[in-house]
Design a protein around this nucleic acid. Sequence first.
DNA 1: ACATTAATAATGTATAGACATAAAAGGGAT
DNA 2: ATCCCTTTTATGTCTATACATTATTAATGT
Lengths: 244, 244
Amino acid sequence: MSLAESGTVPLHQRIRAEIEGMILSGQLRPGDRIPVEHELMARYGCARMTVNKALSALVEAGLIERRKRAGTFVSRPQIHMAALAIPDIKAEITGRGQVYRYELLSRGIIAATDGDPVRLGLPPGSRLLHLTCRHLADNVPFALEERWINLAAVPEAATADFATVPPGSWLLAHVPWHEAEHRIKAAAAGPHGAALALAEQSPCLVLERRTWRQGDGADGEPVTYVRQVFPGDGFDLIARFTGS
Amino acid sequence: MSLAESGTVPLHQRIRAEIEGMILSGQLRPGDRIPVEHELMARYGCARMTVNKALSALVEAGLIERRKRAGTFVSRPQIHMAALAIPDIKAEITGRGQVYRYELLSRGIIAATDGDPVRLGLPPGSRLLHLTCRHLADNVPFALEERWINLAAVPEAATADFATVPPGSWLLAHVPWHEAEHRIKAAAAGPHGAALALAEQSPCLVLERRTWRQGDGADGEPVTYVRQVFPGDGFDLIARFTGS
DNA sequence: ACATTAATAATGTATAGACATAAAAGGGAT
DNA sequence: ATCCCTTTTATGTCTATACATTATTAATGT
């Protein structure tokens, strides 16, 4: 432990926080040089590895860039990157203190075709479980969901009881980690409007999610494709970010 | 360098990638135990710090959890977190190979009031630069933007030439790093529709962004509040994620 | 003057060891 | 059994050092 140590926070975190603070407060501006590791060693009275750990974390976070022989510099922010929390609908509703209710509207097994709305890239003929369901908060329609599950990837889904447990929660519990791509757009409620108690032209937020499981070595195996429709005035996604 | 070294990739990255692969492929499921550091040391023929670096990175990524004495376990995915790239509109359009054009529609300096649409939390009377502008791609309206800039935080903005340079790009270049909160919702075009060549009921994606600069020690100083309106069928946000 | 080569300064990776810390497991005593 | 204490195990942090890598700067030879 160094003399500079004050609280219970590890030193590398403190170093990181101090530099991050100088960047976020504007004391250090994009392009500015950050003291070399040996100077930070002296300033904090610690070993180089400790300084290095702090700076490596800032590199990972995108706040700084390092070039050998040249030094360390504050990055130039370019794109607004945000950490978006895409909610599990049940968790979202109960988290608001409302009563969650779920209804399964339809269920069927279909075969993938070429001109499918399902863009999972499956060979034609692949068996898909097709579900439509509705989520309600305090008995008010909250979201309409249409989902396709690749039965080749998740055969257990064929016998799961989706009348009582929402497919999103079921998959979350039964399929471990996967990769996902989300698309967020706006659309008119259209024929879905009825199920959401909306007029046809009502604007809705549409969230499309496609997930796949990484293969052992080959490319990913598609798992599911969902399309969730939210009333435009009842829901908004929130993304927070420290950055540009 | 260890005997297990094969390519040019650092060993700690290789260890990380192999464990990450086992998690993402489902070989290791949530709750499963990951070998203790000493076993991984033996397996890869390296020091504990190297193993630790790999595992620490996986903790930061949220894939694993570590408890002293108990061991290391695969995390249970709960929320869909996604890295959302909120585009700089100019970059977005030119990136598509389209011609970008920008129009300033109005400019004025107003005073903040209590019941403001501007939720920057400023004391009433604070001076705000209010701008409305339009972004076009190949001469087709792409987005409508309404923006308020806190002149106390960015006094130079009062004399900037927003007739030619979009305020987003100007701020990106003049205000270094800040924190941001984004809200994404759907709404009808409404009276804005005219500027976007849309009917009043057309669904639009609305992106609200509020940013503030971190103070030295105190809370953040608000910088700007933007509200960007995109035609629902011409634009969608894409978020990618490795996770649940 | 110019191209080539060597020294140098910075980061990148890795090691072996030390001590701290937290939680689980075990052992007694009441 | 219950409570308290000790031991053990595994992670968390840090050190001091070593060598690799890379881009810049300086030196050198023609």
